[in-house]
Design a protein around this nucleic acid. Structure first.
Length: 260
DNA sequence: ATGTCTCAGGGACTGAGA
């Protein structure tokens, strides 16, 4: 059984204790992190190694930053590491791709977009187009591919606490839905929707307005699997527990298990 | 009621980004 997880930690400097605590209890085989907000020279390699994980990372000052942890006892090295989205000139550290044994892992921190009127929204759509082109090519090379991270898109009305209010807003707009649909149509499935789930399951809640306490959230963090890998998925869940703790990230981890 | 959190710059608070 292989456990694969994703978590936007909103600063690994702040969240390192929570992350170490969480990996020690869940023991994921692979954990993709987003918004580490750390330059590579400041990355806490030693603490993560002590916790029993190998790690690769790609960061920058203040914003963005991604990392992938792999449990040492899995005995696998990351190879074919990619830190830039092919075809996109971009200094923002938002992607980290690596192969672990036969599994291709694409960790993504999709641009937020700010608002549908913003230039950043166009950047988000361009970014997703480049990602889709890359995934299409990668699926030919790797039957077992997982793309996971903070997509900053809630796919359906049931993934939004108040779909009427959010309709047309950034994170839940038509162009974003079209972009996500095109990505999925390359041959991916949303592992969360392979299974019966309770209603009102979200992965992100605004820090403001008591959003978590009221469960006013969105499901914007996803684990998407190639169809072949999706066939091996046995569960996908959102773990709200770390969001209840002291000094939480605004996101909760998402975890999927595979017969690998 | 955009009500929180994080970071950087610069040495208290403000602005950016989410």
């Amino acid at each position: 059984m292989t456990k694969i997880a994703t978590w936007n930690v909103n600063s690994l400097r702040v969240r390192l204790p929570q992350v170490l605590d969480w990996v020690s209890s869940y023991q994921p085989d692979i954990l993709a992190l987003q918004e580490t907000k750390l330059q590579d020279e400041n990355f806490p390699v030693a603490d993560i190694k002590t916790a029993g994980y190998e790690v690769i990372y790609s960061g920058q000052k203040t914003y963005n930053g991604v990392a992938i942890l792999c449990r040492v006892s899995a005995g696998i090295n990351a190879v074919d590491i990619v830190k830039d989205l092919p075809g996109l000139e971009d200094s923002q550290r938002r992607v980290l791709f690596a192969t672990y044994d036969k599994l291709r892992v694409l960790n993504v921190y999709v641009p937020n977009g700010e608002s549908v009127e913003s230039d950043k929204f166009q950047y988000k759509l361009t970014w997703l187009k480049k990602l889709t082109a890359y995934v299409k090519q990668q699926l030919k090379l790797y039957p077992h591919l997982v793309i996971l991270g903070d997509f900053n898109i809630a796919p359906e009305p049931r993934d939004v606490h108040d779909p009427e209010a959010w309709q047309g807003q950034v994170l839940f707009s038509e162009p974003e839905h079209a972009a996500l649909k095109t990505l999925l149509e390359t041959g991916l499935c949303d592992t969360f929707r392979l299974f019966d789930q309770q209603e009102k399951q979200y992965s992100w809640w605004d820090y403001r307005m008591l959003a978590f306490r009221r469960n006013r959230g969105l499901r914007i963090d996803h684990i998407l699997a190639s169809n072949a890998l999706g066939g091996l998925c046995t569960s996908c869940k959102i773990d709200k527990e770390p969001r209840r703790r002291e000094r939480p990230s605004d996101h909760a981890p998402v975890i999927a298990e595979f017969k690998l």
